[in-house]
């Protein structure tokens, strides 16, 4: 793929005795939002964890910004410019919101202007700045998880199902934040079940099934092709709009 920031080529991942990813091939174009779609159990979360080095691939190659990252440790991958928001959010409940943010800022204390930008989308984080993250609601924890990933500019954001169980008002704020990140030319790989959310943000799409990519192309094409949606996802945008 031309000018792909991230490329997966023939990636296989085993977790214990299970062969989850069975030859994943796709690329994430630089500066856009790529959405990874698929039914539950298709291998989307494992793909994200494999890219992040949390479930290292047993075979295949992952290239990020021209360098091979398959086989690197998660901390090395993070330091190379990849931020990760896991499906379970991964906020540190016993640490305050401020401490969570401080840990995520690798270059030193968080930049105040960047923080104010984050607070403009997620004002609850400012309100609960000194509170343990454990007391936040599910939506507020998701805000914190995303805020942590964008506290410093990163080349690639891996975001796993950010809208899961989240109130619509917060989802609107997320869309606003991701739109601005797109304008800043941040590359995002998004796993998402909410097709409305996915289609409103995505530039390109990859659809997974049984540990493989079964479709890759533009999101606009998929969003307007109800037959393709129905074949790949068993839904149509009209039904979920």
């Amino acid at each position: 793929m031309p000018d792909a920031l991230l490329t997966l080529a023939g990636v296989h991942t085993h977790i214990g005795q299970y062969h989850i990813l069975q030859g994943v091939d796709f690329g994430v174009p630089r500066g856009g939002v790529t959405v990874l779609l698929g039914r539950n159990g298709a291998g989307k979360t494992t793909t994200m964890r494999t890219i992040m080095g949390l479930n290292p691939p047993s075979r295949g190659q992952i290239t990020f910004d021209g360098a091979t990252i398959s086989g690197l440790t998660p901390h090395a991958i993070a330091r190379s410019g990849v931020a990760y928001v896991p499906e379970q959010m991964g906020v540190f409940a016993d640490l305050t919101v401020a401490e969570n943010m401080t840990l995520a800022a690798l270059a030193g204390p968080p930049d105040t202007a960047r923080l104010e930008w984050i607070f403009s989308f997620f004002p609850a984080l400012k309100k609960f700045w000194r509170s343990p993250a454990g007391v936040l609601s599910g939506g507020q924890k998701q805000m914190l998880a995303i805020a942590r990933a964008v506290i410093e500019p990163r080349a690639l954001l891996l975001i796993d199902e950010p809208t899961k169980g989240i109130a619509p008002a917060i989802i609107d704020n997320m869309i606003g934040a991701f739109e601005e990140l797109k304008q800043q030319a941040t590359t995002i790989l998004l796993v998402e079940q909410n097709f409305h959310f996915a289609s409103s943000l995505g530039d390109t799409v990859a659809v997974m099934d049984d540990g493989r990519i079964v479709h890759a192309g533009s999101m606009a094409a998929l969003a307007t092709d109800t037959t393709l949606q129905s074949r790949l996802l068993g839904l149509s945008l009209d039904a979920h709009g």
């Binding site: 896991p86 540190f92 942590r148």
Partner: peptide, 9 residues
């Protein structure tokens, strides 16, 4: 695991 994913050994 999350501490690792944030970039720490």
């Amino acid at each position: 695991e999350m501490v690792e994913a944030l970039g720490y050994r």
